[in-house]
Amino acid sequence: MSIQHFRVALIPFFAAFCLPVFAHPETLVKVKDAEDQLGARVGYIELDLNSGKILESFRPEERFPMMSTFKVLLCGAVLSRVDAGQEQLGRRIHYSQNDLVEYSPVTEKHLTDGMTVRELCSAAITMSDNTAANLLLTTIGGPKELTAFLHNMGDHVTRLDRWEPELNEAIPNDERDTTMPAAMATTLRKLLTGELLTLASRQQLIDWMEADKVAGPLLRSALPAGWFIADKSGAGERGSRGIIAALGPDGKPSRIVVIYTTGSQATMDERNRQIAEIGASLIKHW
């Protein structure tokens, strides 16, 4: 067993022997301040990774656009098919120029040779490549099948209805392509620590998230040296922004954090800054 596999296998073990965790309302004060600064709703939840206990939450059962955070769930569904012998990570998928959609920095470079399922998941999570996500959605049967996968996990809230990039439209009061912070946090925890996926697939999923290259201005910008984070960000229309993450000190994750916002007129930089400040408060009061 590799060191990384050992780390993920012992996530519940280490967490069980940690000192009790206590909620700190100071972080919620910052979440509410972010709402004021952005002029928009902000949803927040913080779960203990081992027990699933909610440590703090704000608007945990209000719907927010998922945006690209759905790509972690998508690759979880792909990995479940791999575990069941219905898919192979090494299978190569070929596609054409007509398949390319807006923001496809990886797939646009491989029109000639195609990409493997493993490479597509890596591109979808680490670079948020939209064509990679659409190609992977095709392998599982489309958005409705991802929703069905989530329902089978016990998540009857999260739903995907459309493809990239239309799913980022974020129309107010439109339930399409949305989740709730509580539902997303619980589902992410199941994917990373539950028995739904094999140990190898859980490790692969967290490795992809740990290698995320496009979430630097968010929670990662607030992390002290030595902290662990595996995350996936999302951005959408109407001032929408979000991030889902597993993080913790001492090089291992111990909490799940989900943050979503929508309806702001603020710039992307300002949305990023507010999420980073929430992260800084979380870490300060850990």
Rank of each mutant, 00 (worst) to 15 (best):
R189K: 15
T131E: 03
D48K: 04
A230E: 00
W208I: 04
A235H: 02
G226K: 04
P172E: 07
T187L: 08
A34T: 07
E166R: 12
Q97N: 09
L49F: 09
E102F: 04
E277W: 06
M67A: 15
N134V: 09
K213P: 04
L89A: 08
N152P: 09
V101Q: 06
A123C: 09
E56F: 05
A200M: 08
R118F: 12
C121E: 01
C121F: 01
K252G: 09
P25T: 09
E175M: 15
I54R: 13
E164L: 00
L100Q: 14
S201W: 07
I171M: 15
A133W: 01
R220D: 03
Y260R: 00
Q274A: 08
P217W: 13
R159E: 12
I140S: 05
A183K: 13
F228S: 13
Q274L: 08
G226S: 06
I243P: 00
A235L: 06
K71C: 00
I206P: 00
S281W: 09
D48L: 03
V157M: 06
S57D: 05
V214D: 02
A40V: 06
P25V: 12
A170S: 06
L247G: 01
N134L: 02
A235C: 14
D36S: 14
T261M: 12
H151I: 09
A215H: 15
L146F: 05
A215P: 15
R220G: 09
S201T: 11
G114S: 08
Y44K: 00
S240Y: 03
T262R: 06
K232L: 01
G52V: 08
A148I: 04
A40C: 07
G279D: 01
Q37F: 05
T138L: 15
I171Q: 15
I243H: 03
L100M: 15
T198K: 10
T27V: 14
D48Q: 03
S68K: 00
K30E: 04
Q204T: 04
G90Y: 05
L120V: 05
F58L: 14
H151Q: 06
L74A: 13
L47K: 07
A211F: 15
M66D: 00
S122V: 09
A222D: 15
V78Q: 04
V29E: 14
W286F: 06
P60I: 15
R81E: 05
P172V: 10
G263W: 06
A245C: 10
I93M: 07
E46H: 10
S221G: 07
G90H: 10
G141A: 08
E102T: 07
K109I: 15
V257L: 10
G76L: 05
A200H: 06
D250M: 05
F149K: 06
I243A: 15
L136Y: 00
R176V: 13
L150Q: 07
S128N: 01
D177W: 00
R202G: 09
M268G: 14
Y95G: 05
E237N: 13
E145S: 11
R92K: 13
M67K: 02
F58A: 11
E169L: 07
R159T: 14
E277K: 07
G52Q: 11
T187S: 10
G194T: 09
Q88L: 10
G52P: 13
I256G: 03
L282G: 11
G141L: 10
L150I: 14
A222W: 08
K213W: 06
D155C: 02
T116A: 05
I275L: 15
S221Y: 05
V78P: 00
G279K: 01
G90S: 09
L47I: 13
F64N: 01
A170M: 13
L191F: 08
R118G: 11
T69L: 03
F58V: 15
W163K: 08
Q86I: 11
A246F: 10
D33M: 07
E61Q: 15
M67I: 09
K32Y: 09
H156I: 09
H285F: 06
Y95E: 01
V78H: 15
L74S: 03
L73D: 04
T126E: 10
E108N: 15
T69Y: 00
A84G: 14
A132H: 01
L199Y: 04
P172S: 06
G279L: 07
T178H: 02
D174W: 03
Q37W: 06
A230L: 10
K109L: 13
A230C: 12
L218H: 03
A246I: 12
G248W: 02
P181N: 00
R273L: 06
P172K: 12
D99Y: 09
S201V: 14
K284V: 12
L111P: 12
M153D: 04
K144P: 06
Q265C: 10
I244Y: 02
S80W: 14
S122R: 10
L47H: 11
S281F: 14
H110D: 14
T69W: 00
G239C: 07
E169G: 07
M153P: 01
Y103A: 08
W208F: 10
L150S: 11
V82T: 12
V42T: 06
L135Q: 14
L282W: 02
M66T: 10
M268C: 13
L73H: 04
V31P: 01
T27S: 14
L136E: 01
V78I: 15
F70C: 07
E270I: 03
A246Y: 05
D177E: 02
A77H: 04
G114R: 04
T193C: 14
A84Q: 15
E277L: 13
Y44S: 01
D174M: 06
A246C: 09
M153T: 06
T261K: 11
D113R: 04
F70Q: 13
T267H: 10
A133D: 01
I283L: 12
M184L: 06
R220A: 06
E61G: 07
F70T: 07
P25H: 15
K32A: 10
M66W: 01
L196A: 07
D250T: 04
T262E: 04
M153C: 05
D155Q: 02
V82D: 06
G279C: 06
A200L: 12
L223T: 13
T139Q: 13
S80N: 15
N98S: 11
A170R: 12
A276E: 05
G251F: 06
F64I: 02
G76H: 02
W208C: 07
D33E: 08
R59D: 02
L218I: 04
A182N: 06
R63M: 08
K213C: 04
P224L: 06
G248Y: 02
M268L: 11
P217C: 15
L150E: 02
A185I: 08
A34D: 02
K252S: 10
A280V: 13
E102S: 09
D129L: 01
G226D: 08
L196K: 08
K213S: 03
K232W: 01
L197A: 09
C75L: 09
I171E: 15
R118Q: 15
